[in-house]
C-alpha cells in the first residue's frame, strides 16, 4: 500500500468579500505519496495557492478535512499546529518572506530557535545549510543585500532547518529570471531525490513540470485532472529550451 503523506477530503474554502461569498475551493480530493514531487498547476485565481495554504496548515478550510501523516489537521491544538509548521513542513514562498531584520544566518536559525535547539547546534546547522545552497560566503548579509535568487536560497535553507518531511513551495520561481528559476528548481529537485523530501509546489512555471512526478491541474477550485510526468514530456521539452 502506498504511503500517503497528504490527503484532502472534499476541501472547500470560501472567502467573504463584502456581501459576496467567493468559493475558492469547491471540494478538492487529492492524495500525495511520500517522496513525491507534485506540482499544483492552474491560472491565477484557480485556487492553487488556497489549496497550498490548506495543505500547509496556513489557513483553515471552510469544509472538508486535510490529513497529514494520518492526522486530521482540524483536530490539532494550537500548540500542535505550531509544532507541525515548525518540524514537519518547510515553506518556500514566491516573495521569499525572509525577515528583513535578520541576516541570512539569522533567518535559517529562527525555526531552530522555535524548535528549542541549542545555540551551538543551530549555528552549525545553519552554516551547513547555507553552504549547501551556495551561500557560505554571504551568511551574515541581510536579505536586502542579496539578489532574488540568493534570497530564495536562504528561504530554502530556512525551510530545511528542522529536517521537514514535506517542502511546500508556493510559486518559488515566479519572481526570478529563467536561469535563476532553473537553479532553484534543480535545488528543490535535488532535495527531493537525495533526502526523500515530499515536494508540493503551486506553480504556473512550465519548467517545474519537467521535474514533477505528477501534475495536478486546478481550475475554478476543482481538480481538473491529474497527469503523470510522461504524459506531458513533449510540451516541456519545447519550453525548457527557451531560457537557455
Amino acid at each position: 500500500m502506498a504511503d500517503i503523506v497528504v490527503k484532502t477530503e472534499d476541501v472547500v474554502k470560501e472567502y467573504r468579500m463584502g456581501s459576496n461569498i467567493l468559493r475558492a475551493l469547491d471540494g478538492i480530493n487529492i492524495e500525495i505519496e511520500r517522496g513525491e514531487y507534485i506540482s499544483l498547476m492552474g491560472p491565477s485565481g484557480s485556487g492553487k495557492s488556497t489549496l497550498f495554504n490548506m495543505i500547509g496548515a496556513l489557513d483553515r478550510p471552510t469544509e472538508g478535512r486535510v490529513y497529514i501523516d494520518g492526522q486530521n489537521m482540524s483536530q490539532l491544538s494550537q500548540k500542535q499546529i505550531a509544532a507541525f509548521r515548525c518540524h514537519r513542513v518547510g515553506y518556500i514562498f514566491q516573495s521569499y518572506n525572509l525577515l528583513h531584520v535578520r541576516s541570512a544566518h539569522g533567518n535559517v536559525t529562527l525555526p531552530m530557535i522555535f524548535a528549542g535547539i541549542s545555540e551551538k547546534q543551530r549555528n552549525e546547522k545553519a552554516e551547513k545549510l547555507l553552504d549547501m545552497v551556495g551561500l557560505g560566503d554571504r551568511m551574515y548579509h541581510l536579505p536586502d543585500e542579496l539578489s532574488g535568487g540568493q534570497r530564495q536560497r536562504v528561504a530554502i535553507a530556512r525551510a530545511l532547518a528542522n529536517d521537514p518531511s514535506i517542502i511546500l513551495a508556493d510559486e518559488p520561481t515566479a519572481n526570478l529570471d529563467t536561469i535563476t528559476g532553473r537553479e532553484i528548481i534543480d535545488l528543490i529537485k535535488r532535495l527531493n531525490i537525495e533526502q526523500g523530501v515530499t515536494v508540493i509546489s503551486a506553480t504556473h512555471d512550465l519548467k517545474m513540470l519537467d521535474v514533477s512526478d505528477r501534475i495536478v491541474d486546478i481550475r475554478d477550485g476543482l481538480v481538473e485532472r491529474i497527469r503523470n510526468r510522461d504524459e506531458i514530456e513533449i510540451e516541456v521539452g519545447e519550453v525548457g529550451g527557451e531560457g537557455e
Partner: peptide, 22 residues
C-alpha cells in the same frame, strides 16, 4: 492511510530568547 508518529506540542520558548529577539 497509516498513522505516523503523532504531532507533538510546540515548546514555549524561554523568556530570555524573546528578550534577545525583541
Amino acid at each position: 492511510m497509516q498513522q505516523r508518529t503523532p504531532i507533538e506540542e510546540q515548546i514555549d520558548l524561554p523568556f530570555i530568547e524573546s528578550l534577545r529577539i525583541s
